[in-house]
């Protein structure tokens, strides 16, 4: 709806809808897990459980931002997806090399192993999708388009 203002392709439609759904699934998966763990046994692994909660919030923020179809939404999505990427890599490495810190699993443990490595792939898909939708809307076909606008935004 607000895509007209940014002059770019909407991030929440077409393939973006599928990406959005996957982000929602992970927000739910991480959030439910964190909720149960914090409510029932926070003392056992406070770091891992807090991290699950943080991961859930990041997935949720990314999902909402992607659904906004606006420049601001795009920016928030970019930040949250980068945090997600850093998170999955750092937590993945820590869970392998410093297992004591993570006695119980999070969505990001072992690079998202417990979730079919989707958490590792998802940020790349998200970044690719943001990049794809940065190009302004052009009519398909007719004449070959020679990239009329080079976006110096960089964001």
């Amino acid at each position: 709806m607000t895509s007209e203002h940014s002059g770019m392709r909407p991030t929440g439609r077409g393939p973006g809808r599928v990406i959005l759904v996957i982000y929602c699934i992970f927000a739910l998966a991480a959030g439910a897990r964190a909720g149960v763990q914090i409510a029932t046994k926070f003392g056992e692994a406070p770091l891992a459980y807090s991290l699950s909660a943080v991961a859930a919030v990041i997935y949720l923020v990314a999902a909402i931002a992607l659904s906004r179809n606006s420049t601001a939404g795009r920016r928030v999505a970019l930040v949250s997806i980068v945090v997600e990427l850093v998170g999955v890599i750092v937590v993945g490495l820590l869970s392998v090399f410093d297992a004591q810190a993570f006695p119980d699993a999070t969505v990001w443990s072992g690079f998202g192993q417990g979730y079919g490595y989707v958490p590792l792939v998802l940020p790349f898909v998200g970044l690719f999708w943001l990049h794809r939708t940065t190009r302004p809307i052009t009519e398909p076909a007719t004449k070959p388009v020679t990239e009329p606008v080079t976006n110096s935004d960089g964001a």
């Binding site: 439609r13 077409g14 393939p15 973006g16 809808r17 599928v18 759904v21 996957i22 699934i25």
Partner: peptide, 21 residues
């Protein structure tokens, strides 16, 4: 609901992903 919101091929993909869950 999500499939209804997206009356393109991506709606079908969304339903497919949803069903795989």
């Amino acid at each position: 609901v999500l499939g209804r919101m997206e009356p393109t091929k991506w709606g079908s993909v969304t339903i497919s992903v949803g069903c795989l869950v």
